[in-house]
Simulated assay, not measured.
Amino acid sequence: MTGQDKTQPDELDNDAIGAAIADAIERANFGLDLKRQGVTTVAIDEGGRLVEHRPDGTTTLLS
């Protein structure tokens, strides 16, 4: 087996892991998960403004 033959499965494994991570990120809703835990978060809205989101559903424009 050559060095190149040995790295090909590793590259395939890395590609599969990368694809799985990308898929998980697309499906993740960190804001909702954190809200359920009672955590206040901040996000940038469509207008580029910083907005605070509290677990009770209220928001405050920060900038």
Results as ranks from 00 to 15, higher is better:
Leu62Phe: 01
Gln8Ser: 07
Thr59Phe: 09
Thr59Trp: 01
Asp23Cys: 02
Asp13Ile: 13
Gly47Thr: 05
Arg27Tyr: 00
Leu62Gly: 08
Ala43Thr: 12
Glu46Thr: 10
Asp13His: 09
Glu26Cys: 00
Glu46Lys: 14
Thr59Met: 11
Val51Met: 03
Glu26His: 04
Ile44Lys: 08
Leu32Thr: 14
Leu50Asn: 13
Leu62Ser: 08
Arg49Ile: 00
Asp45Cys: 01
Thr7His: 09
Ile44Pro: 02
Leu61His: 00
Met1Leu: 14
Gly57Val: 05
Ala16Gln: 09
Gly47Leu: 13
Ile17Phe: 10
Asp10Ser: 12
Leu62Gln: 05
Ala28Gly: 00
Thr58Arg: 12
Thr59Tyr: 06
Ala19Tyr: 03
Pro9Ser: 03
Gln8Glu: 11
Ile25Arg: 12
Gly18Cys: 01
Val51Asp: 04
Thr58Pro: 03
Gly57Lys: 06
Ala24Thr: 02
Asp13Met: 13
Asp15Leu: 11
Leu32Cys: 05
Thr41Val: 04
Asp5Val: 02
Leu61Trp: 02
Ala43Asn: 05
Asp5Leu: 11
Glu11Pro: 07
Lys6Gly: 01
Gly47Glu: 04
Leu34Asp: 02
Val39Gly: 01
Asp45Leu: 01
Thr2Cys: 03
Glu11Asp: 03
Ser63Leu: 07
Ile44Tyr: 05
Glu26Gly: 08
Asp15Ser: 13
Asn29Ala: 00
Ala22Leu: 06
Ile25Met: 08
Leu61Asp: 06
Gln4Arg: 13
Ile44Asn: 00
Thr2Gly: 11
Pro55Trp: 08
Met1Gln: 12
Gln8Leu: 14
Leu12Asp: 07
His53Ile: 09
Asp56Tyr: 07
Asp45Val: 05
Gln4Tyr: 09
Thr2Glu: 01
Ile25Asn: 06
Thr40Gln: 06
Ile21Phe: 11
Ala20Arg: 11
Leu34Gly: 10
Pro9Trp: 05
Asn29Met: 03
Leu34Trp: 07
Ala24Cys: 05
Gly31Asp: 05
Ala43Gln: 13
Ser63Tyr: 03
Thr60Ser: 02
Ala16His: 04
Arg36Val: 11
Thr60Gly: 02
Asp10Pro: 02
Thr2Asp: 09
Asp23Gln: 15
Asp13Ser: 10
Pro55Leu: 07
Asp45Lys: 09
Gln37Glu: 09
Thr59Lys: 11
Ile25Gln: 04
Glu46Tyr: 06
Asp45Phe: 07
Val39Ile: 13
His53Arg: 15
Gly3Asn: 10
Asp15Phe: 12
Ala20Lys: 06
Asp5Ile: 00
Ala43Arg: 15
Leu61Ser: 08
Ile25Ala: 02
Leu12Val: 04
Lys6Trp: 05
Gly47Trp: 01
Glu11Ser: 12
Ala20Leu: 08
Ala16Asp: 02
Lys35Asp: 10
Lys6Gln: 09
Gln37Arg: 14
Ile17Val: 15
Glu26Ser: 15
Leu12Cys: 05
Gln37Ala: 15
Ala16Phe: 10
Phe30Cys: 06
